[in-house]
Write a protein that binds this DNA or RNA. Sequence first.
DNA 1: AGGTAGTAGTGTATCATGGACACTAATGTT
DNA 2: AACATTAGTGTCCATGATACACTACTACCT
Lengths: 222, 222
Amino acid sequence: MFPRHIKFAALAVDVAALSFIDGALNVRLVTTQVPVFKGKRALPGALIRPHETAHEAAVRVLEEKAGVSVKYLEQVCTFSTINRDPRGRVVSVAYMALLSPDELRAVKAREMHGAAWVPLSRIPHLAYDHDEIIQTTAARLRGKIEYTDIIRHLLPQAFTLTELQEACETILEHPLDKRNFRKKLLAQGIVKQTGKSAHASAHRPAALYMFTASRKGAVDLI
Amino acid sequence: MFPRHIKFAALAVDVAALSFIDGALNVRLVTTQVPVFKGKRALPGALIRPHETAHEAAVRVLEEKAGVSVKYLEQVCTFSTINRDPRGRVVSVAYMALLSPDELRAVKAREMHGAAWVPLSRIPHLAYDHDEIIQTTAARLRGKIEYTDIIRHLLPQAFTLTELQEACETILEHPLDKRNFRKKLLAQGIVKQTGKSAHASAHRPAALYMFTASRKGAVDLI
DNA sequence: AGGTAGTAGTGTATCATGGACACTAATGTT
DNA sequence: AACATTAGTGTCCATGATACACTACTACCT
């Protein structure tokens, strides 16, 4: 219904999928096959198809390139710089995906060649403007950790309070006081005991907690 | 460089330009000429051109349809629902623009037919998904007012503290305490006196203030 | 079995911040 | 000169934030 010259750009999504691995925040990277960037690392992405929304495309990318059906997916920003893709004009909608260790196991089960989890601290220079996308996404996550319970999507269904605290500390990049952290957390009723204990370590077992039903309003987590 | 069938969608920007008029937050609306929505109100928007970014397109829309060169423009969200535009697939990047009364005078100088400022409380049902865009934009503004000094873009270069407080109250939709408001504001050093006074009313003149240089970090405004 | 190493779990005292609250000051108008 | 109206100011209290150190529990080792 629009003349052809109006449709000059391709539409894409790029997804920064984040997950904790060995206590560090990792992002899922793939290896580009596009000639100009041949061999370079990039975020998983794909062109949006005529019959899907950007959100649906992001879900598909995660399924195809990370082999996971993600539970938390949030639009971050749209990048429309003219020469951001050497193949032609591509406008890309960036998404942040958060994966819990539970979901991560499904990824590991069917590992794909050329794709890998890379700690945020060791990310190489990426293809396209993906460096910028990751910076923007990480900043968004860091901001939301303080006033939402977004961290729940990065933790397993059951977790110890120490694990939760370490997750927050990793993202905020500064230590938190154990007693104050627990006091506030329990006062807000964000988590509750499962009744079970973790017996993973060779020491005193920690009580396992789970998140309570998500609140409608904002929470004051940290 | 991409095959033609990849470029199936048109790209657009829609801009929610906000400004205070008579103490109320208003948004700039135009009247659609598109047959399906003929006569309906909508946000000013336009298709992105091949040689401009979304941001540049938003700037252009404001110049063409609101007659103003805006100082504050922020990307809000990208809408990609498949049938959001009856003319065909259009993916739209929504922007929030904030105009000070100073900038507003330039708009009034060359008023355009079919365009008008409408108080947020009296917005009719709009064309496309523009109702949703306005809701999202207003929510973004309300959220940012508390932890940034974004309000500065909605005020004139010089203003009284009462004006500043009323602006915050209007956006937050609840009253603030005069003394506490001033205490916090001055403690943070966000504003400073200009040395001049407003002699507009028939009563005690108020001191005129201006914002200090924008801080790098977040401020705790309210 | 007893000791050791290592993590889990708990409370108080102080300090800073946020919120409630009411009067005096300055100006133009009558 | 009195009045009407808006501008401008400080204290007290409650709440939340922070600093801080010991006991409890378990597996492992000998």
